[in-house]
Amino acid sequence: MPSWVSKQDWVSVSSFSRAYRESIQQGYRDDVSTYLIVTLILGFIDGVANAACSATIVSILMTLIPGHESSITAWTEMFLGFGYMFGPVLGSLLFEVGGFALPYYVVGGIVLVLAFALLLIVPNVKPGSLAKGQETKDDTKPSLTIKNVVTSFRLSLPFLDNFIIYCGNGMVDSMLQPHMRKSAAQATQFQVSMAFLLMAAFYMLSTPVVGYACDRIKSPILFSIAGNIFMFVAFLFVGPAPFFPSLSASVPLLLGIMPIFGLGYGFVLVSTFSRAYKESVQQGYRDDVNTYMVLTGLWTASFHLGSFVGPTVAGFIVDAIGFPQTSQISMAVFLLMAIVDCIQYYCQGRKSKSRSQYENLT
């Protein structure tokens, strides 16, 4: 083993090498071009399937369980987090037991069984269906469209918040590991894993709580403001900021920051959908499955776009100026989003107060 390769890195590389050698031995093609083409095609199919599944299932649940829109989103994201946590573990175990192909056969079989189960279990909610418990359809209200969202700042701002939070999360996911390993922290691979585990744990714990609260408060934007402030503080210390000369990157500091990342991520993620839904209802659009489909589709698109843009842009910037300086750019962006959300919250308060005064006069 080369002296500059850590034991953890060597295990990771050797595991991949074993999987690669076994795939070749089992008759799979050793062709980089074919691999890249097939990977892109499968990635595209996976993205379409993921968007279609998440948008439709969430919309159906909102129709069947009205009044709990934020909680449905929160619980969906919590189980998605569980999947991201236990998926690599399950895949590793299956690989050790049955080799390269077994994880794909098992997971693919489970997905296929679930697809048929959905046909039997989930009710057929047709386009235009009202939420359960609503007796009549008000045809005087317009149907929400993507154009309505894009042309309304109050409707589009939650999706911008969602995009930004996923950009920040993408940067952390892709850049934190080399930062922890190569900075003054000199973290081990186990400590890096613990950092991501702490962030995921606090994210999953916060989402159902925030969802429950957003369903019951008038201004879920307060959670977006708090979440952006959490992300601002987390990026302030993850570098840490150059204007803290006596503070350097260390394992205790980075592990202590990870829960703040998880809380900020969960706060913004859940509250953005609640804000968009309540704003669409306030603006007089129909409260039906079509509205849910538009909102969930745009919400899903915004976080997938952020997941792509975040690590891609961060990679170029980190190569150019380094991780601490890049984290300060992210810090400034989240501070700006917190200020914009505060302005919107103030304007909403003024508008609500003016409406109440007008109603009292009439």
Results as ranks from 00 to 15, higher is better:
94 L>Q: 08
56 T>H: 07
262 G>H: 05
236 L>Y: 10
100 F>S: 04
146 I>M: 10
7 K>S: 10
17 S>P: 00
150 V>C: 01
163 F>C: 05
343 I>R: 10
71 S>V: 09
348 Q>L: 13
311 P>H: 11
177 Q>M: 10
256 G>T: 06
81 G>W: 02
333 V>W: 02
222 L>Y: 12
252 P>L: 09
260 I>N: 06
134 Q>W: 02
335 L>E: 05
37 I>Q: 07
103 P>S: 04
21 R>K: 14
8 Q>L: 11
245 P>K: 02
46 D>S: 15
255 L>G: 03
101 A>V: 08
203 Y>P: 04
141 K>V: 03
362 T>I: 12
5 V>L: 15
338 A>M: 11
212 Y>D: 09
350 R>V: 12
331 M>R: 07
271 S>F: 08
161 D>Y: 12
248 S>F: 02
180 M>N: 05
311 P>L: 10
146 I>L: 11
353 K>V: 06
221 I>N: 04
51 A>F: 06
341 D>A: 14
332 A>G: 12
251 V>R: 00
223 F>P: 09
330 S>D: 10
309 V>G: 03
25 Q>L: 02
342 C>F: 14
74 A>W: 02
17 S>M: 14
118 L>G: 14
83 G>C: 12
37 I>F: 12
152 S>Q: 10
196 F>V: 01
3 S>Y: 00
51 A>T: 14
310 G>R: 03
91 G>I: 00
151 T>H: 00
323 F>H: 04
318 V>P: 03
73 T>P: 04
65 I>M: 03
227 G>I: 02
164 I>Q: 01
354 S>F: 10
181 R>M: 12
165 I>W: 00
56 T>E: 13
239 G>Y: 00
47 G>C: 07
187 A>Q: 05
272 T>I: 04
122 V>H: 05
104 Y>S: 08
265 Y>N: 14
30 D>Q: 11
211 G>F: 01
72 I>H: 05
103 P>H: 00
265 Y>S: 09
307 S>N: 14
167 C>H: 07
55 A>M: 15
282 Q>T: 12
8 Q>K: 12
340 V>G: 06
120 L>W: 13
124 N>L: 07
178 P>L: 09
343 I>V: 15
358 Y>F: 09
211 G>T: 03
125 V>E: 13
274 S>D: 02
361 L>M: 12
178 P>E: 07
250 S>H: 07
35 Y>K: 02
20 Y>K: 07
289 V>P: 05
169 N>L: 15
143 S>R: 06
332 A>I: 13
192 V>R: 05
274 S>P: 09
141 K>I: 00
313 V>Y: 08
44 F>V: 09
147 K>A: 08
289 V>K: 02
343 I>L: 14
5 V>I: 15
356 S>V: 04
311 P>K: 10
323 F>I: 10
210 V>K: 04
276 A>K: 09
300 T>P: 08
237 F>E: 05
294 V>Y: 11
142 P>W: 03
315 G>D: 02
302 S>Q: 11
232 F>K: 01
